[in-house]
C-alpha cells in the first residue's frame, strides 16, 4: 500500500473495501442486479448467462464493493464454495416467480450455510426476491417462508423484493448490507 493510499485512508477519503459473493440459481437475475448497481457508463446492454464467474465493482457512500458474480448453472454451482472464505457478505438471489425451483434454491442455501467456511462466521446474507414484477411472483414474506429463512439464527439476514430490470428494491438491500459489513469491520478494530 502506497503512502498516498495510507494518507487517503487516514483522512477518511478512501472508502473501505468489501468482497461480496453473489449466488443464486441460473436465470434468477444475479448479473442483471449487479449490472443495475454499476455506474451508468459501465452498464452492459444485454445480459447473457454467466459462464464460470465475473468480478464486478460498485460503490455505495461508505463502502466499495467487489462482487463475485457466480454462475448459477448446475454445473458451475460447485465453484461457489471456493469463494466463501474471502467474502464479507453474501447476496443470494431468488427468482420469486419460479415456484418449482424454490426447493432447489433452498437446497443450495442449506449447502452454503452448512459449509465450514460459512457455518461459524457471522456473515450477513442479503436475499433478493427478484422478478417481483412477474405475474406469478410470490411476495418476499412468502418467499422467506418457502426458503425457511426464519431458521437462520446465527447470521444477520434480510430479504427484499426487487426488480432488477428497473432497479426497484436493490438500493434498500445494498444499504442494509453496507451497514452490516461496516458494523462487522468496526467491531473487528
Amino acid at each position: 500500500m502506497g503512502l498516498f493510499d495510507m494518507l487517503a485512508r487516514w483522512l477518511g477519503v478512501k472508502k473501505k473495501e468489501a468482497n461480496v459473493l453473489v449466488v443464486g440459481l441460473d436465470n434468477s437475475g444475479k448479473t442483471t442486479i449487479l449490472n443495475q448497481l454499476k455506474p451508468d457508463d459501465t452498464k452492459a446492454h444485454d445480459i447473457v448467462p454467466t459462464v464460470g464467474f465475473n468480478v464486478e465493482k460498485f460503490a455505495t457512500k461508505s463502502l466499495s464493493f467487489t462482487a463475485f458474480d457466480m454462475s448459477g448453472q448446475g454445473r458451475y454451482r460447485n465453484l461457489w464454495e471456493h469463494y466463501y472464505r474471502e467474502c464479507h457478505g453474501v447476496i443470494f438471489v431468488v427468482d420469486s416467480s419460479d415456484k418449482l425451483r424454490m426447493v432447489v434454491a433452498k437446497d443450495e442455501l442449506d449447502q452454503l450455510l452448512q459449509h465450514p467456511d460459512v457455518k461459524n462466521r457471522r456473515i450477513p446474507i442479503l436475499f433478493f426476491a427478484n422478478k417481483m414484477d412477474m405475474r406469478e411472483a410470490v411476495s418476499s414474506v412468502k418467499c422467506s417462508s418457502l426458503m425457511e429463512l426464519e431458521l437462520i439464527r446465527d447470521k444477520p439476514w434480510h430479504i427484499c423484493a426487487s426488480n432488477a430490470m428497473t432497479g426497484e428494491g436493490l438500493h434498500e438491500g445494498v444499504e442494509w448490507l453496507t451497514d452490516q459489513i461496516k458494523d462487522l469491520v468496526d467491531k473487528k478494530k
Binding site: 419460479d98 418449482l100 425451483r101 432447489v104
Partner: peptide
C-alpha cells in the same frame, strides 16, 4: 427437463 431444471 421441466421449467429450467434438468433433473425433474
Amino acid at each position: 427437463r421441466f421449467g429450467r431444471e434438468d433433473g425433474t
